[in-house]
Design a protein around this nucleic acid. Sequence first.
DNA 1: CGGGAAGCGGAAAGTGAGCTACGGTTCCGG
DNA 2: CCGGAACCGTAGCTCACTTTCCGCTTCCCG
Lengths: 195, 195
Amino acid sequence: MSTAASTTPTERPLRADARRNREKIVSAARQIVGEHGEAAQIDDVARLAGVGVGTVYRHFPNKEALMGELVRMCVVECTAIAEQCASIEDPWDAFAGMVRSSCERMAADAAMRRTWQAADDAAVAYAAPVKAELHDAAELLIRRAHESGELRPDFTVDDMGGLMCGLGAAIDAMPEPDERWRRLVEFALDGLKPH
Amino acid sequence: MSTAASTTPTERPLRADARRNREKIVSAARQIVGEHGEAAQIDDVARLAGVGVGTVYRHFPNKEALMGELVRMCVVECTAIAEQCASIEDPWDAFAGMVRSSCERMAADAAMRRTWQAADDAAVAYAAPVKAELHDAAELLIRRAHESGELRPDFTVDDMGGLMCGLGAAIDAMPEPDERWRRLVEFALDGLKPH
DNA sequence: CGGGAAGCGGAAAGTGAGCTACGGTTCCGG
DNA sequence: CCGGAACCGTAGCTCACTTTCCGCTTCCCG
């Protein structure tokens, strides 16, 4: 039994080339989803990644799982932004910085805003654990801004999801080359200051 | 030739039962799209309308055309809201009333906010003529609010699309039974007042 | 360096939704 | 009241996309 238990069934090292392919697949998926949104096809992802379709399905049991991984990556990036902004001294600048940087990221990377729309419930559930971290990181910034009196008290962490979804949709709805969306973000931030 | 020209090829009266069926189809489509968004199926629409699939395709050449009709109806409703708010005396109340009423409509009717996402470019193009009317109606309210100095001057008609898209997405992202979305709308309106 | 397993590729099966063909039915003009 | 045409419902075709299957290749370890 002890010898049989030496292999860890929950986690295995993953071969070198397999690891490389996995990264290529995820990277390609990001680009394809950014271009085609929900209509993204596994076939296109495989072609862009330079691998066969079977390889995609070796790494992800189905399309849903691949989407879930993309969602997870987006959440991780957002968390990184939030934690990075935590080092800003002024509480309001820290909060506003998180919102601005996140929007900047969404505007620059179509996958960032389209992934949420393309993901179904199962994919979102897959990212639940990392989502908790994002929640905590955002809550910290919001509490600091509340305490300094620069953020209206009736705005809570639970409103962040709606806010960012709304800003993402607004950015998506505006002609890309123009950067008129920046103004809308500032309008929203002004609305979040104490009335 | 004169006898052949007596029939108007561009427009025909439409039989009584056909008219009734067409209305049932559109009504059913609204509900199905509201429930399933982009994943709405013609089959379900036909079943809910109590007609066969063939009947749906008699009235609309393809799914795209049906979606286009839904988009058109949404735009017409929005225009009606805007024109209705034009009778409000106070310029700011008129503008804010348009935004609030539109959001109210989106919150109450899932089809109202999901239709935009489900519609592709062709469907949107189909609704272009009525969209111009909405543009004009919104522009009137915005100009009045600008002139009275109650709406920030750097907010223009071209920002309305992004604003409403954003608010729609935000409403969609929030748990339905709760009416927390109303607060977000007020935040946005506060942000649109002169800084 | 060689045995063996993990990984890869692409053809093909499976699946489901959009769309069409056609025989029966319902409605309007005379 | 009736002839003809517009209309309706069903059944199944088509086609695109996901998923699987299996022989071949590449990598790791002793």
